[in-house]
Design a protein around this nucleic acid. Structure first.
Lengths: 217, 217
DNA sequence: AACCGGGTCCCCCGCGCGGGGGACTGCCGA
DNA sequence: TCGGCAGTCCCCCGCGCGGGGGACCCGGTT
């Protein structure tokens, strides 16, 4: 089964280079070349290629905008590969948010570009390795940011439990009902939590819990 | 320049399969094979290979644990590629957090595995495309999570300002001082905010603001 | 045996908070 | 011109909250 590809770049020279690369593969077929983003959007809608390879920088509408337009139409099944000369975090995140299947540097070896087209066509996504590393780094911090404050293990299990409920904005009475204890007991726990964490009142406790990521888990 | 590789998997058969794949490349050299995670950690420390290919499931210490131990020692420059039979989100995120350079399925074609080793050795990271796609999806939501509640634009600019300060756990008096207005004014603003957002008290307001991501920005 | 920490319950007191009213200014659009 | 809205300030009232005490039980350590 052959794969149809659309090329979008404002430099005719680069387009023919890409076409030459793809034409070395019997199963890859360039069905269109366009020179700007708006043409890319309309030609994709008309020809519905398997994969569209878009330069980021293009006249009228850049690759990112074209990607967003193409993928916002659910009728389009075309996968998007974005090409850029220099990578930039901003570009990557916007591209990924829009749902692009790949984000590649023009320095990528031809055989890897071909492989990227096949990967994208079968529905998987692919990012240039040098970009992936930064993506991972940023993803990792956004996943495991909260360096649990040390004073937090001064709290007993029960106190942590109460703190969690306080941070969900429950009143002392509500917490008491939820834990099946008297509300005087809850007041004691809350007071101890505030003292141990050096917080003024439950409002500070709520902010503290959320800021330190206690509510994610 | 040749690249040294360490293989860790509890199945000798799979190890020899991997070794055979790498030995087809003149510049790749398997310097060690081990059958469990602890051996992997010590051999990596001793031989300092360019790349270590670790199975996730191994006796004594799994690939994830071994990765964490290896990468927590800054003296190790070895890059880690993790292998698994079935992918699991949990594994991926833990692997990425530990700093692994790759997360690959055993179904990966040999030539892509070889390419992965080269990519890892030159300091880049690489994830199996099918995994990448989910990574992107999750990353995208973690970047653009706060679907700003509609009732929020009932608030005037001043009220949003006050809400932000409330969410930072400032008292009415503190907010008044900060905004150079009387505290009666602040009380009015707070009351309006609570009414418009349907919140009971400032404690709910704090939780609301944090949960809806108003504090990130 | 004595001790201590965690969990539970109780009383009193002061205060910040939030709701209920009302009122004045300035600005913008009908 | 007049209304409405946002922003500011004011008073009173009730209540939840947090600090200050104290008390009991239980389990584990000394």
């Amino acid at each position: 089964m052959t794969l149809t590809v659309l090329l979008a770049d404002d430099h005719a020279m680069l387009r023919s280079g890409l076409r030459a690369i793809f034409e070395t593969q019997p199963d890859l077929h360039c069905v269109a070349e366009v020179g700007d983003g708006r043409a890319a959007v309309s030609e994709v809608a008309r020809l519905r290629p398997d994969v569209a390879v878009l330069d980021i920088r293009m006249p009228k509408l850049d690759g990112l905008g074209a990607t967003e337009m193409i993928l916002s139409d659910p009728a389009n099944r075309t996968k998007i590969l974005l090409l850029t000369t220099y990578d930039s975090d901003e570009y990557v995140y916007r591209a990924l948010n829009a749902g692009a299947s790949g984000f590649l540097l023009k320095s990528l070896p031809p055989e890897e570009l071909i492989s990227a087209v096949r990967v994208a066509a079968r529905g998987d996504a692919l990012i240039d390795p040098s970009v992936t590393q930064r993506l991972i780094a940023r993803f990792a911090v956004s996943l495991a940011p909260p360096p649990t404050p040390p004073e937090l293990d001064l709290l007993t299990a029960r106190e942590r439990e109460v703190l969690h409920l306080v941070a969900e904005a429950f009143s002392n009475a509500e917490i008491a009902a939820r834990l099946h204890v008297g509300d005087e007991t809850v007041k004691t726990h809350v007071s101890r939590v505030l003292a141990k964490l050096g917080l003024r009142d439950r409002v500070h406790a709520v902010a503290y819990a959320h800021i330190n990521g206690l509510m994610r888990r």
